[in-house]
């Protein structure tokens, strides 16, 4: 990713790195700031978790449970999702289609 005429002098490496970083430095700093904020919070939280590994390691299938949940508790979001997909379809086709005539 370094510049094309790579010169392997120390100065040359520093210059190339600098040129690469210059437009990205703000993004990096902001991303690191964000990461730091999140990580500090994540590591200083006592997350609740189960005491032991779930039993029955062989049969870890969640499919049935998920299916039941989708059609009981989360039937409303499921239905809304149907409308979402329909409108995404419509919107995407409308936007992507070329000239009518």
């Amino acid at each position: 990713m370094l510049n094309k005429e790579v010169s392997f002098t120390l100065m040359g490496v520093i210059t190339s790195v600098y040129n690469y970083l210059k437009p990205r430095i703000l993004g990096m700093m902001v991303a690191f700031l964000f990461l730091a904020v999140i990580l500090v919070a994540v590591f200083s939280t006592a997350w609740p978790s189960l005491d032991q590994i779930p039993q029955n390691l062989e049969d870890q299938s969640n499919i049935q449970g998920i299916g039941v949940l989708i059609f009981t508790e989360f039937v409303v979001p499921f239905e809304i999702l149907a409308i979402v997909l329909l409108s995404a379809l419509m919107g995407a086709i409308y936007m992507a289609k070329g000239d009518d005539k």
């Binding site: 703000l26 993004g27 902001v30 991303a31 700031l33 964000f34 904020v37």
Partner: peptide, 13 residues
């Protein structure tokens, strides 16, 4: 986008 993310980080602090 940068403004949004800076906003989030700074707002926390």
């Amino acid at each position: 986008a940068t403004a949004v993310i800076i906003g989030v980080s700074l707002l926390v602090i």
